[in-house]
């Protein structure tokens, strides 16, 4: 399956993904209307700034193969699709016990203040490409299969090697 993959070296920390995510998960799906909405639309992707290198790393749900959050959820509000592996969250079932965020290794389960429930990435159902990926101006976020990304990286590496060889030859 395709997933949201991160290429931190390309991220410039513009946080477009965060805004796009919040807007996508709003009622109106419009930035200006979304700002006024109650409950406040919430992002599910987090751009973490790294001051030493003046760089940033976006983090979002990895939809783990054997997702710990789904195992600990006492009400089955968090469920993993057997085929697509997408971990989804039902606000109706959520009791706000936060066991899921305690076990999440990535810290990407947030809290919806007004509704007092967990919020997390659901890979934008109904969209071909998740909003965050679409909004990313530098392709730091890509929506690909893992093996596809490795392929892209291999091509890039090969290109670099080839250039190096050329330099030698000249």
């Amino acid at each position: 399956m395709k997933e949201v993959l991160i290429r931190p070296e390309l991220c410039m920390g513009c946080r477009s993904c965060e805004i796009a995510c919040a807007v996508e998960h709003s009622e109106s799906k419009n930035l200006f209307a979304a700002i006024m909405e109650k409950p406040t639309p919430q992002k599910r992707i987090y751009v973490e700034y790294v001051p030493e290198y003046n760089a940033a790393i976006p983090m979002t749900c990895r939809h783990c193969e054997d997702a710990p959050c789904t195992t600990v959820c006492p009400t089955k509000a968090l469920k993993q699709d057997e085929i697509t592996r997408v971990v989804t969250h039902s606000t109706d079932l959520c009791i706000g016990c936060w066991a899921c965020s305690m076990v999440c290794n990535y810290g990407v389960i947030g809290r919806q203040k007004e509704a007092r429930v967990a919020v997390k990435c659901n890979l934008c159902p109904g969209r071909e490409i998740p909003a965050c990926v679409e909004a990313c101006p530098t392709n730091a976020l890509v929506f690909l299969e893992v093996k596809k990304l490795s392929g892209v990286k291999r091509t890039e590496a090969a290109l670099k090697l080839a250039r190096g060889m050329q330099g030698k030859a000249l």
Binding site: Y46, E48, V50, I57, M59, S101, C104, N105, Y106, G107, V108, I109, G110
Partner: peptide, 11 residues
Amino acid sequence: SFGKNIRHRNV
């Protein structure tokens, strides 16, 4: 707030 700590650790 506490997801943040975990994210920072990952960063």
